[in-house]
Amino acid sequence: MEITKKVRGGDVRAATRLIRNLEDRIPHAKDTIKHIFSHTGKAHVIGFTGSPGAGKSTMIDSVVAELRKRDKTVGVLLVDPTSPFTGGAILGDRIRMQRHALDPGVFVRSLATRGALGGLSKAVGDAIHVMDAMGKDYVIVETVGTGQQEVDIINHAHTVVVVLVPGMGDEIQAIKAGILEIADVFVINKADRDGAGKLYRELVYMLSMVDEFPGGWKPPIIRAENIFDADSFQRSLDELTNTIGQHYQNLIDKGLLGDRIRRKAVLELNEALLAAILDPVLTKLVESGEMKEMTEKLLKKETDPYTLAEMIASRYLVMPAE
C-alpha cells in the first residue's frame, strides 16, 4: 500500500493524515494499521504525566532538544481535553515546542481526547504505532494531566515520567491516588521554589514504604531548577534524559520490557474487540431505531438494561458449543 510505504518512509503529511483518519475512525485507516503493525515496536515510548501547570510541555521540549543533540529522532503526541459541551478543543501545548517546528527530526502532533472511554484517547495508542512505524527513535506522549488518564499512560509507555511542582497543593494527593505505582522517574520541577524540599522528603518517604520494586528499579527523583541559570536547568535535563535511557535499558536487562509490551497488547486487543463487536451492533441498533425504543422502555421502567443487553447479545453472538 502506498500510504504504508509513505509512513514508513517518514512522510509527515501521510502520517498526520493517517492519525487523523484513525481519530475520525475512518474504516480504511484500520486497514493501514494492519499493514503498519508488523513494523512497529522499535521506538522507546515515554509518557509524561503530572498535574496541569507542572511544566510537562516545557520539560518535554527540553528533553526533545537533548535527544536531538544525541542525533535521535523524536515524535511527540500532545493530548488535550475535548470540551464535553461543544466537542471542540483547544490544543495549546504545541506552543512550548514550536522551536522544534523547523527540525525535520521532530514531529509534533496534537490530539484531543474526544471523550474516549478509559481515558487516553484510543487514537493515541494508534498514533504511537504510526510514529513508531515512521522510524522515530523516541515517541513521547504528554497526557492531559488530570484524572484517569494519568494511570492509563502506563498501558502505552515503556517509561513513565511524573512531573511534580511544589506549591500546587495537590501533588501528594496525586501520588496517593496511584501516580506512585506508575512512575518510573520523578521530576520535581522548579525545585528552587519554596516547598520543594518538603515535596522531595515526602516522595522519599513514600518510596521508602515500598518493599520491592519490579526489576529492582527504584524510581529516581530528579530536581530541575531554572532560576537565573539556563545552564543548570539544562544539566538537570541531561540527567533526566540519561535516566530515561537507563530505565529502558533496565527493562531490557531484567527482561521486563516484554511485560510492558504485553500490557499494551492486551489493552489494544480489548479495544479492537470492543470496536469490532460492539460498533456494528450499535450502528444497527441506532439506525433501525431500536435503540430509541429500548431507551423508552427503560424510562417507563418496563424492563431493565441487563435484560435488554442479554437479549441483544443472544441475537448477535453465536457462541460455539463447548
Binding site: T82, G88, A89, I90, L91, G92, R94, I95
Partner: peptide
C-alpha cells in the same frame, strides 16, 4: 481560539 473550541473545532494555538 475559544470561540472555535465552542464552535466544535479542534483548535491548535501556536502562541
Amino acid at each position: 481560539a475559544r470561540c472555535f473550541r465552542d464552535a466544535g473545532y479542534e483548535t491548535i494555538y501556536t502562541g
